[in-house]
């Protein structure tokens, strides 16, 4: 058996598999351009009518804005609490701190269905079901561990002597944090914020439990459309959802690339 032939075969297989991973996700694009009024692939001509319907629909537009507000608010909260927490654990840097880190990462590893149950159980008596604060708080708890991870990764490469120098030169703890630590870990904070935004923007399982009538996010409305399985407007909404996610992803990838280049040259 020729090993390099086997390796070449495997490489070809890997490309096919990667195509299998990406291509099906893009199927929503042609479906959203169908000229017909039911879910189908366009055959002769393309039409933008479903996008016109999507952007002309008060319901879809309100979902779009609600998703945006919830994602931005929970990104802000998750980034703030996650960054503070990462800096705190970095300063503590003890066995107890590592146990605490594991506990705080639990929302990332516990299945979303259990998280959904927990929030639902808590929010019904508090009257937070179907409200902005309820969804924002829930998405914050789910997204903060992502920020904790990315900021901790940045802190691992941060020279602790910079902080000591700043304190030694007489800066207060707050000034040191604002002027020395935060600028040093900015890439980690930004990456965390992007991931937090995407995680809230795409979130569906917890949202299914917490949103009823008045707060209805984009994935929530898509879920209904998918269940009914008739209206091609859902395909247009899927494309919009995907484009926003991929733009956020691109921002992160370009920033990471610029940073890598900067490191190489600087």
């Amino acid at each position: 058996m020729n090993p390099s032939a086997a390796a070449r075969l495997n490489t070809a297989l890997a490309w096919v598999l990667l195509a299998f991973l990406v291509a099906p996700a893009l199927v929503a694009i042609p479906v959203s351009l169908t000229p017909k009024t039911f879910l189908s692939f366009p055959t002769d001509e393309l039409s933008l009518q479903h996008y016109r319907k999507l952007f002309g629909s008060a319901e879809w537009m309100s979902s779009f804005w609600q998703s945006t507000v919830i994602a931005l608010a929970s990104t802000l909260l998750a980034t703030a609490t996650g960054t503070l927490c990462a800096i705190g654990l970095w300063r503590v840097s003890s066995r107890a701190g590592e146990v605490m880190r594991a506990v705080l990462l639990l929302p990332l590893v516990i299945p979303p269905i259990i998280a959904a149950m927990a929030f639902y159980r808590l929010f019904v008596p508090l009257g937070l079901i179907d409200s902005y604060p309820g969804l924002i708080l829930a998405h914050t708890v789910l997204a903060a561990p992502l920020v904790l991870i990315t900021v901790s990764a940045s802190l691992a490469g941060f020279d602790v002597r910079l902080e000591q120098a700043s304190r030694g030169l007489g800066a207060s703890g707050f000034t040191t944090m604002r002027r020395v630590i935060l600028p040093g870990i900015k890439p980690g904070v930004m990456a965390g914020a992007v991931f937090a935004f995407i995680s809230s923007w795409d979130e569906i399982v917890v949202t299914l439990f917490l949103s009823k009538f008045s707060v209805y996010t984009l994935p929530r409305r898509m879920w209904n459309g998918i269940r009914e399985n008739t209206d091609p407007t859902v395909a247009a909404a899927a494309v919009v959802l995907m484009v926003v996610t991929l733009v956020a992803f691109l921002i992160w990838a370009l920033a990471a690339r610029a940073r890598a280049k900067g490191l190489k040259h600087g």
Partner: peptide, 17 residues
């Protein structure tokens, strides 16, 4: 001071999750 910074997230995760 380090533990103080952990507190906001810890409170959120404990109370809500």
């Amino acid at each position: 001071a380090g533990w103080l910074l952990v507190l906001p997230l810890l409170a959120l995760v404990l109370a809500l999750f």
